[in-house]
Amino acid sequence: MMSPTAALAAIGRPALALLAAIGRLALFVFDTISHLFRPPFYLKELRDALVSIGYFSLPVVGLTAFFTGGALALQIYSGGARFNAEAVVPQIVAIGMVRELGPVLAGLMIAARVTSSIAAEIATMKVTEQIDALVTLSTNPMKYLTLPRVLAATIAGPILVGVADIIGIFGGYTVATGRLGFNTAAYLQNTVNFIEFTDITSSLVKGAAFGFIAAVMGCYYGMNSGRGAQGVGQATKLSVVAAAVMILAANYMLTGLFFTS
């Protein structure tokens, strides 16, 4: 039997550790954002980050969205058939993709592709003293490494989500008109008529938030990596897990914010 104080300590210790971790992360975020307002600015790094985070994520995000949109159309069709509601495929695909699946899938793919590579790159730089070298060359690593990546991901996030939304709807459209016998013009008409402005804004806001989370987690775990190859591996793994969980949690909160009144 555990003594009461030991029991309390067993609860208190992880709780304190969690609070400390949240505090460190919050400081990291504030530090990152503060560099947005303090020159110098490293525009070349920002451009490179935009290309590697945004442009090179397009194929994987597009493919994921296409197949998911197609599968969604099939599911809604067969599910809807149970109560004679097959016709709602365009509407549900549109709302499902734009409100939830587009942002979440793009977010998770960004976490898989971008968070992991940022964490591994920065952790390797840390382990091989490149971060120390930056400091001795009068360059702030937060400004030079973290800010460009976070900024680029926050800009690329909405774009990738927008692409995911469109390609996802197109995936549903391809399946519905190709396999399920929907009329092409009517499908598009139904989609356009059904989507509301808030659906789109919520989608893009989620994209920005998820991009931000993905890059921050990659940088945070990379900068705090342990030593050696093991440290790099650990940092990479933790960063992806943390980013994915935080993206899903943020998605729930943003959905609550946008769609419950």
């Binding site: 003293e129 490149q130 120390d132």
Partner: peptide, 16 residues
């Protein structure tokens, strides 16, 4: 302060 210093790291620490 740092502008006055140059440092060669043991492992080189070149930016790859």
């Amino acid at each position: 302060f740092l502008a006055r210093f140059g440092m060669l790291f043991q492992g080189g620490a070149l930016f790859d």
